[in-house]
């Protein structure tokens, strides 16, 4: 199906044709990533590949829209669609920022153990997290710590760490068939997920499946 941001109906070359195939699937993937991020207690591996690709599509579309007549019906329709997509993207990024602000120390310490290929944060997010932590520390020091007696003046990272509750319950729908998930807290009780079936279960039991895309949170 043809579906990229091309307002003019001509597909100029084959490369573009290929892009057209993926635009829709990228959008679906972003929407899934958005919901997963929204409902997962911990921060998930970043999908900047999807975000960057979609932002490019949006820019491309906006360029094309400039060529349209103000009265053109398409202008309004494309604008509405872009607004919807931008909403999903901003909401996705914001959900991640919220988690970064909440679990800063925890996320940074976890991130330090990951190699650059498997890191969960984008470069910009990592920088944000570090600056956020520095600012918090500065705030603590200027407001309170410096007025304390000497042995209370240290900024104790360990006591300030907030960790996400991975045992929280989540709703999910299975994308693939999955066998033998062990229900946490039970006596070796196992469940199988049929594709398309819906469940509520502890996040920790399915965290890896969320990250691999075998299930999606709903």
């Amino acid at each position: 199906m043809e579906n990229n941001g091309d307002v003019q109906m001509t597909a100029e070359n084959d490369d573009q044709e290929e892009e057209e195939v993926t635009a829709q699937s990228v959008l679906l993937a972003i929407e899934e990533a958005w919901l997963n991020e929204k409902f997962a207690p911990e921060i998930l591996p970043h999908r900047s590949d999807l975000v960057d690709c979609m932002l490019q599509q949006i820019m491309h579309m906006e360029e094309n829209m400039k060529r349209l007549d103000k009265e053109d019906l398409r202008l309004m329709i494309h604008r509405m669609e872009l607004d919807r997509i931008k909403y999903v993207i901003t909401n996705y990024l914001r959900a991640r920022l919220e988690k970064i602000e909440k679990y800063t120390i925890h996320i940074l310490s976890q991130e330090a153990t990951r190699s650059s290929e498997e890191c969960y944060l984008t470069v910009a997010e990592l920088q944000f997290a570090k600056e956020f932590l520095t600012n918090i520390e500065m705030l603590f020091k200027t407001i309170a710590l410096q007025h304390m007696p000497g042995n209370f003046q240290t900024f104790e990272v360990d006591t300030l760490t907030v960790k996400p509750n991975l045992q929280t319950y989540v709703f999910l729908r299975a994308n693939d068939r999955i066998n033998g998930i062990i229900v946490p807290g039970s006596m070796d009780e196992e469940i199988d997920l049929e594709p398309g079936s819906q469940h509520i279960i502890q996040y920790s039991a399915v965290a890896d499946l969320v990250k691999s895309g075998a299930v999606k949170l709903i």
């Binding site: 199906m1 043809e2 579906n3 990229n4 941001g5 091309d6 307002v7 109906m9 057209e20 635009a23 829709q24 959008l27 979609m54 599509q57 949006i58 579309m61 019906l73 398409r74 329709i77 494309h78 669609e81 872009l82 997509i85």
Partner: peptide, 14 residues
């Protein structure tokens, strides 16, 4: 109540 060619949206054509 109008006629128009196919519109190519990012989410698919209509």
């Amino acid at each position: 109540n109008f006629s128009f060619d196919m519109i190519h949206l990012i989410s698919g054509s209509v």
